[in-house]
Design a protein around this nucleic acid. Structure first.
Ligand SMILES: [Mn+2]
Ligand SMILES: [Mn+2]
Ligand SMILES: [Zn+2]
Ligand SMILES: [Zn+2]
Lengths: 139, 139
DNA sequence: ATCAAATTTAAAATTAAACTCAATAAAAAT
DNA sequence: ATTTTTATTGAGTTTAATTTTAAATTTGAT
């Protein structure tokens, strides 16, 4: 996934390639870890960008649609996102005491879910598995 | 889980046993399936209860803490809850088109999660697995 | 029964997110 | 290159969910 992919995606939807969309895309591409719309807005602002929150909120669904990011855990009442790479899908363990997030990936677990969905004739697009509990340090 | 358990829990926290808390507890105990705070409020109102939304919102965290309910999928931007029983844990497939929720349970999947947590020295308390996609009818 | 402390309600405040619309920018047509 | 069309933008407004406030009521201990 690079800027060309994004621009092609935008064009193919009949939308326009704009400075603001590019700025937001670039910033998200350079973001590691979890973030929320406000953080993204602030980071862009600090870099001198003049994007508005409205543009952030309007662009995020596009980034989700193209598969650059996905919504992750909602610990507060607002949404959090994280970059997706083809090879980086993972699930989360979340410590209920210190808030630490442990990322993990289990191919067996993924396959098992595929099987279960087949059985139910459900066409799986994405999933979110969050295990809540206590991390080693907090037990 | 019965009213006595709830009352003991409330007392043990140094809180007071009140009519409103009892009414909310009773209503949730009689609720099957998923619900949101507004639905709970309306159902109580129709039964003649004079509870306010504020009390609903203040009591829900207590019901979560005692383990009577848990938060389930957030398809809209508001929270949804569901009653928990020791023997009724299940996960959800959620249709992204029609909103249908399919409940499923896989012992293998549960065991696999336990194993993964052991490996990470994570003390698992609960988990939430939501698979998003398209149901048979919507594909 | 008394009374301090917790709880209640309605209303106001807060928050995340979506929407409105006049001004602007991008793409298409000339 | 200029004009025309159409989409996008940001500031501010709006909505909906949830939380807080503050005055009135209820609870539980004495
Ligand atoms: Mn992650
Ligand atoms: Mn369910
Ligand atoms: Zn921890
Ligand atoms: Zn469906």
């Amino acid at each position: 996934m690079n800027k060309e992919d994004f621009r092609n995606f935008i064009s193919s939807k009949g939308l326009k390639i704009t400075k603001k969309r590019d700025e937001i895309f670039d910033e998200v591409l350079n973001t590691k870890g979890h973030f929320d719309p406000e953080e993204l807005y602030m980071r862009l602002k600090q870099k001198g960008s003049k994007v508005s929150r409205a543009s952030i909120y309007r662009t995020i669904p596009l980034l989700v649609e193209i598969g650059l990011i996905e919504e992750v855990e909602r610990v507060d009442k607002h949404a959090h996102y994280e970059r997706v790479s083809a090879d980086s899908h993972h699930d989360h363990m979340i410590c209920m005491k210190c808030g630490k997030v442990i990322e993990f990936f289990s191919p067996t677990l993924e396959m098992l879910q595929d099987e279960i969905c087949q059985r139910e004739n459900f066409h799986k697009i994405r999933h979110s598995l969050e295990i809540f509990g206590l991390c080693k340090q907090c037990q």
